[in-house]
Design a protein around this nucleic acid. Structure first.
Lengths: 246, 246
DNA sequence: TGTTTTAATATGTATATACATAATCGTCAT
DNA sequence: ATGACGATTATGTATATACATATTAAAACA
């Protein structure tokens, strides 16, 4: 997402939006190089014939987006690109499959309720042992396996999950909207399919797979750990770029 | 990144920051569930004993962050988490290697200047044929290959690159800071190593690899296409979670 | 000359005010 | 009932103003 909002059909944008996009344009195009001092608020308010507050609103947003740095008494300066960040959109698998024009099918393979093992606790980053729900699910695109899901749900954080069989609804959509998440972490890597995954995805053992692991917290309590395994041919993650972001 | 700024040592935060974090806290904790109508601006301005403008500043930021949705005449409502977006930090490979405590070494394997082929144009999403620079580079962690880089640079967009040998400096760091980028796209997938990659990374042919491809534009002109290939064991991409983001 | 004090300046935050805009509600006529 | 229409209401944007705060430049002083 760009910090510049797209104008609507009539092209009516607010003044501070226009100031923001004008300046952002000049920075992006390189016309104002990193280190360059952009005009003072009072200069811009004269240029645009508006109040300083309006200019301030635009510049504050640019500063928050990391495009400029503001220093009292000195002015505002174009920042040099720092950490490059890309936004990964994490879609629902059903949506992904249907976007391919293929019929989606979900299947619960296994479901076990147990007291968390040391391994479970490591995956969940859970402090003390407690009840967990371990799920294994298949996601299909047409007849072909699309992704294999291995999930742990912390029943201390989400006790209602104990009453759910997850035969009809997949745990992902079930959790979303029910549990407010505050933080999560993704790990993405390539692995060779082990025997178990090879059978589940109907590929050769040792074939390359993309693994996306996600750990979710809600208010400092671990909620779930999920590992999606995709056969190499079936999946590419796409990330849009975000300039800036301080 | 949280939209709630961290307070400084004395705990002095501006009032609109406090309002923002109070509300954000209640949403994150689930106290205010999705669909809940949060108090009107005039109610909050009474509660906090401040002007409506101050409340508006906080709520506007929450809306932009995607935590709430604002509807005229109706009020502001907690949004249910929509598209989940994760921020991928794209680091410099040198930094990544050095973070592992290993000595970093860069090596230019090949460099060809040529008129762009149909394949080149497809990778760059370049309209018409023009001069391109094709580079192949190795990145090493200690003695082991860490990543293999295959890059195309559009010499129409970056003519100075034609004079650079890229023996000492890697093309990534060279381009960064020199070319202001405005947009990019990443594709991440797992592949089996072909003969060429297997030799370059010193792994078996067919072994799983993580491929990160990046295409960069600057002011609508394609600048570069790069493909990094990592041996499966050597690399995991980590993404932090961003709740919201409309 | 070197140090301290003071003034000037740009940004940061907050206020009261004004009017625009979109959506909803109630009323009234059909 | 149903539709038109005006009143109401919450948000959206912008203004002029005020004072706080950080930082730098200039002036005063030892």
């Amino acid at each position: 997402m760009s910090i510049v909002e797209t104008a609507d059909a009539e092209g009516t944008v607010s003044l501070h939006q226009r100031i923001l996009s004008d300046i952002s344009e000049r920075i992006m195009s390189g016309a104002w190089a990193p280190g360059h001092r952009i005009p003072f608020e009072h200069e811009l308010s004269t240029q645009y014939n508006c109040s300083r507050m309006t200019v301030n609103k635009a510049l504050s947003q640019l500063a928050k987006a990391g495009l400029i740095e503001r220093r009292r008494r000195s002015g505002s300066f174009v920042r040099r690109p720092q950490s490059q960040a890309a936004v990964l959109e994490i879609h629902d698998i059903r949506i992904e499959v249907e976007a391919l024009g293929l019929p989606y099918r979900y299947e619960r393979v296994a479901r076990h309720k147990r007291r968390s093992s040391a391994e479970d606790r490591a995956l969940l980053e859970q402090g003390v042992a407690g009840p967990v729900l371990a799920l294994e699910c298949g996601h299909f695109a047409g007849e072909r396996p699309f992704a294999h899901e291995q999930r742990l749900i912390n029943l201390t954080a989400v006790p209602e999950a104990a009453d759910e069989e997850f035969v009809v609804i997949a745990p992902g959509p079930w959790l979303i909207g029910r549990v407010p998440w505050s933080e999560a972490e993704h790990r993405i890597r390539a692995v060779a399919a082990d025997r178990h995954i090879a059978v589940a995805l109907d590929i050769a053992a040792g074939a390359p797979c993309l693994v996306v692991e996600r750990r979710t917290w809600s208010a400092d309590h671990p909620v779930t750990h999920v590992r999606f395994t995709y056969a190499a041919e079936s999946h590419t993650l796409v990330a849009r770029f975000r300039p800036s972001q301080g």
